[in-house]
Amino acid sequence: MSKYAPLANHLKAQLEDSVELAFTHIDSLVNGLPPSARNHDAWWANSRTEDSHTWAHLWIAAGWECDSVDRANEIAVFRRASDSLSKPAHRYWWVNHKQTHLDEYSGGYIWAPKTKKNGNSNEGYLNLTKAKVGDRIISYANGVIKSIGVVTHGYVDAPIPKTHWEAAEYWGSSGWQVSVEWMPLTTPLRPKHFLDQIAPLLPEKYSPIQKNGDGNQGIYLASISQDLGNLILRLVCEVDPTAVQTVNEIEIEGEDALQEQILRSSEIPETEKQQLVRSRIGQGIFRMRVAQQEKRCRLTGVDNLAFLVASHIKPWRDSDNEERLCGSNGLLLSPHVDKLFDRGWISFSDDGRVLISAQAKSVAQAWGLVGTSNVGAFDPVQRTFLKYHREKIFKGS
């Protein structure tokens, strides 16, 4: 991983279009700027050529440019670029489902016609064409918020789903479909109970709900502000503390989707790009390289590859392209073990001790994972990635 990747990741996480960073702040992110950064303005140039300015290539790939640098006062100002990566990391949308919400949950999508039967369209339909990978969608049905989703693929032309045929007499035959990874809430949230907080943040035009809290069924998909989206997530966690993990899952899914989108739009060779994309889900050359080093799940002992997941130790979203395909950055794990490891509920020490977070001990015990205290030592390269996992991903102390 490039030492400058943390700077690019820091910029990518910003929601504002401009950010001022002190050199000391950048020092902490990249483990020290080189002397040339403090002595020469040219170090901060937004290079797009095949040169050695890899740091600039990284912040450009993240959608940012260095706007100005004040070496005397040791301050650099970065501004979001004006290309397709210039938008904030994600937007929030609110979808008003009717009777089709269960079908859209199970199918992993939202769908709307391009027009009504009379040829008229509306903003709620057109908004499907504006939803981008990584955007968050608040799902409202029957007076409550039941699920939160992450857009995993932008809109495509799609005929009306069979499950929507009852409404076909009101709609045109063709429509748009957006793929969504839905995450159901254990305890649904009723917006009417929080109108004093929600109402002031509703959009003036094309609001998803009315001021009295009733749904606005004339709008299928509505754009809502970051403030309202963040408020909904906070309220969800207050109503149901267990939903915190659901929100974390949403953030992870959104970041993974954004990283894949950036990768797909990059200029690296197509064959390498496909291998990197496949490595995200533990497939392709990454899986082969992991299997050359790891012969079984270290916790369950299962050695049949058909039942094992090639799991990144340092998450795919946090790795550079070399690390994403590195066999030492992976373990073969049984699916339930992969889930615990991927989300930081368990980890391993360098010498193979199993580390289990307090929140996951009952689950690990129910799955029969508590009896194994040591899974065997790891090689030096694996230890480097495990150190990252313990420090950045593991939820234990």
Rank of each mutant, 00 (worst) to 15 (best):
Y4A: 02
E16T: 11
D17M: 08
P35K: 12
A37R: 03
A37M: 10
H40T: 13
W43N: 01
S52L: 14
H57V: 03
G63R: 02
W64M: 00
S84R: 13
Y92V: 00
N96R: 11
N96Y: 13
Q99T: 15
Y105N: 08
Y109W: 09
I110E: 00
N118L: 02
S121W: 07
T129P: 05
A131F: 03
D135G: 03
I137A: 04
I138V: 08
I145Y: 13
S147G: 03
G154T: 07
G154E: 15
V156S: 14
D157S: 07
P161H: 05
Y170N: 12
W171A: 10
G172A: 12
G175C: 08
G175T: 01
Q177G: 05
T187I: 14
P191Q: 10
H193C: 07
F194T: 02
D196T: 13
A199C: 10
P200I: 02
Y206K: 06
N212A: 03
D214G: 06
G218E: 11
S223I: 01
S225H: 00
R234N: 14
L235R: 01
V236Y: 05
V247F: 09
A257C: 11
Q259K: 09
Q261H: 14
I268W: 05
T271E: 15
L276D: 02
R280D: 05
F286L: 08
V290F: 05
Q292V: 06
Q293W: 01
Q293I: 08
T300I: 07
V302L: 11
V302F: 06
N304I: 13
L305F: 13
A306K: 12
L308H: 07
L308S: 05
S311V: 05
K314T: 13
P335T: 02
R343H: 11
I346M: 09
S347Q: 09
D350W: 03
S357D: 10
S357H: 08
L369Q: 05
P380S: 10
V381P: 11
V381A: 12
K387P: 02
I393H: 04
G396Y: 13
